[in-house]
């Protein structure tokens, strides 16, 4: 019979959460904000009247959605220092921390997924709303920011949140660039103390609790939105 050592969790609790989980949550939160901003921009470009803009944004989204996330994480980790050096005109590769590199990667990667959700959201707003806003004298930018996007984001809030829960799970992939997120911290403790089963079970439980609570909330939100509409 395997001898469980629950004590290892208690001993490493502070490290797991103060270092690991805060990294995971910060990365998720910031990448969500950045991804939403960039994703919205991409969505507007994809719906633009200008063909070139449509093609560029479409190409970007299709590229990102066709690559494995791990590959993109690696790619940016090695690429960003050189791009940074080129942008700043420095001869040396720029020193970019693992967190910054991961944040840039997740923002750019998630933006492609958020873009498609927001694009569907914009298209779900009836064209009469645009006509009404235009008839009142609102410009294209005002119509988008004050009338269309608020409705698009509200309609798509459950899907956007679901995507963010997936993003939270995906942040664990930063282990490939040796960053210590929650799973990374758990893994380090597991190896140090030879308590693999305990630590991985505990990590799974924590991820399950957070993500399942999140998806319960998404379901309630969906029900509420149905009432509003």
């Amino acid at each position: 019979m395997y001898d469980f050592d629950i004590d290892v969790i208690e001993r490493s609790f502070a490290y797991l959460f103060r270092d690991g989980m805060s990294f995971s949550l910060q990365l998720t939160g910031l990448a969500m904000i950045g991804g939403l901003l960039f994703g919205t921009t991409l969505a507007l470009l994809r719906l633009s009247n200008v063909r070139v803009l449509r093609l560029i944004a479409g190409g970007y989204v299709n590229l990102m959605r066709s690559l494995p996330l791990v590959l993109v994480i690696f790619w940016f980790y090695f690429l960003v220092p050189y791009v940074g050096a080129w942008l700043t005109g420095s001869g040396q590769p720029l020193k970019v921390g693992a967190f910054a590199s991961a944040l840039i990667t997740f923002t750019l990667f998630e933006a492609a997924y958020y873009c498609e959700i927001i694009r569907a959201g914009i298209q779900s707003v009836p064209s009469g709303q645009v006509s009404a806003a235009h008839a009142l004298g609102l410009t294209y930018a005002q119509t988008m920011s004050l009338v269309v996007l608020p409705q698009a984001l509200r309609n798509m809030a459950p899907v956007l949140l679901t995507q963010t829960i997936i993003l939270f799970q995906d942040t664990s992939l930063v282990y490939v660039i040796s960053s210590t997120d929650f799973l990374g911290a758990a893994s380090k403790v597991a190896n140090r103390d030879h308590r693999l089963v305990e630590m991985y079970t505990f990590a799974a439980l924590v991820y399950f609790l957070i993500c399942f609570t999140g998806s319960l909330y998404v379901r309630r939100l969906q029900a509420r939105l149905l009432v509003i509409r």
Binding site: Q129, A132, A133, A135, L136, G137, V147, P150, Q151
Partner: peptide
């Protein structure tokens, strides 16, 4: 936009802003 602001319009399906 400036011209439209001087002409009011009412639509068949109201088109009030639901949010």
């Amino acid at each position: 936009p400036q011209l439209r602001a001087q002409i009011g319009m009412v639509f068949q399906h109201f088109e009030l802003f639901p949010h």
